[in-house]
């Protein structure tokens, strides 16, 4: 009788709310778990190389900077990147005459941790979007061609002639057999793509570091992975030869004029 009583009380009015609550909670938990599981199975997290997309709005924001304000802001960059945009440190990039969009994209990628650097990340984070546009406008306005009065530190090395022949072939013609496009088709002076840096006055050690980083996937901020693909196709010697070629200032003239006959 007592047992029956208790049973009826369990099913009675007083016991229904907790039972319903437990049931609905279990249902919600189950649904959430299954939907999470489904998401994990159907859509693995997208691997995004960079948040930059070259829409007209992005290009307008990146190229509308004030070079004079940028000059004042760039005083803090002088220590590493040089007062004339030519770095005294071989592994730090020269920024003189660098395309606005190229510098802008790298600062954006440093800020969003798509390109990793302990030095550049806090600097890029501290700049406002207007500051970034101004700084890149300043560096784009700096002259690339040598002047006898300046004391720039470029070129820092001399190319080995044997190496230079390998490099100039790759830079001007690429290698059709292996599907390696010529460097100068995107990095100048023959043609550029949006947001691609010019390499004609870049330091050898910096170019080599970046080629190695792309090949080892330590740097992954190239949109649609062209650099990761190409650097992986190059041999170690070829990467070294290309770095030496650009680092010794040979890139200032069209590569085909120095190509072997």
């Amino acid at each position: 009788m007592q047992r029956n009583n208790r049973f009826s009380s369990v099913l009675g009015r007083s016991a229904w709310p907790p039972a319903l609550l437990t049931l609905s909670l279990a249902l919600i938990a189950g649904l959430t778990a299954s939907s999470l599981n489904l998401q994990a199975r159907d859509n693995p997290p997208d691997r995004i190389p960079s948040y930059v997309a070259w829409t007209p709005e992005t290009i307008a924001a990146a190229s509308g900077g004030d070079a004079f304000r940028g000059m004042l802001l760039a005083k803090r960059c002088d220590h590493c990147h040089g007062a004339e945009g030519f770095s005294p440190i071989a592994s730090t990039p020269n920024l003189a005459g660098m395309d606005k969009l190229a510098t802008w994209k790298q600062l954006e990628d440093f800020r969003t941790r798509k390109r990793l650097s302990r030095v550049m990340e806090p600097i890029a984070t501290s700049l406002s979007s207007r500051d970034v546009a101004d700084v890149v406008a300043y560096y784009a306005a700096l002259p690339v061609l040598p002047d006898p009065q300046d004391n720039r530190t470029f070129p820092q090395s001399q190319a080995d002639p044997g190496h230079a022949a390998i490099a100039s072939r790759l830079i001007s013609f690429g290698d059709g057999e292996r599907g390696i496009p010529p460097c100068q088709a995107c990095h100048g002076p023959v043609a550029y793509r949006t947001g691609v840096p010019s390499l004609a006055t870049q330091n050898a050690a910096y170019v080599l570091n970046q080629l190695e980083a792309f090949a080892n996937r330590a740097r992954t901020n190239d949109i649609n992975m062209p650099m990761r693909t190409i650097t992986a196709l190059l041999t170690e010697g070829e990467r070294q030869a290309i770095a030496d070629y650009y680092g010794s200032g040979l890139g200032l003239q069209p590569a085909s004029s120095t190509a072997p006959k």
Partner: peptide, 16 residues
């Protein structure tokens, strides 16, 4: 498809 933002989302992201 938007050719400028293939890498951001959708069918043609890197890992797909």
């Amino acid at each position: 498809v938007d050719p400028l933002s293939l890498h951001l989302s959708g069918e043609f992201v890197e890992n797909n």
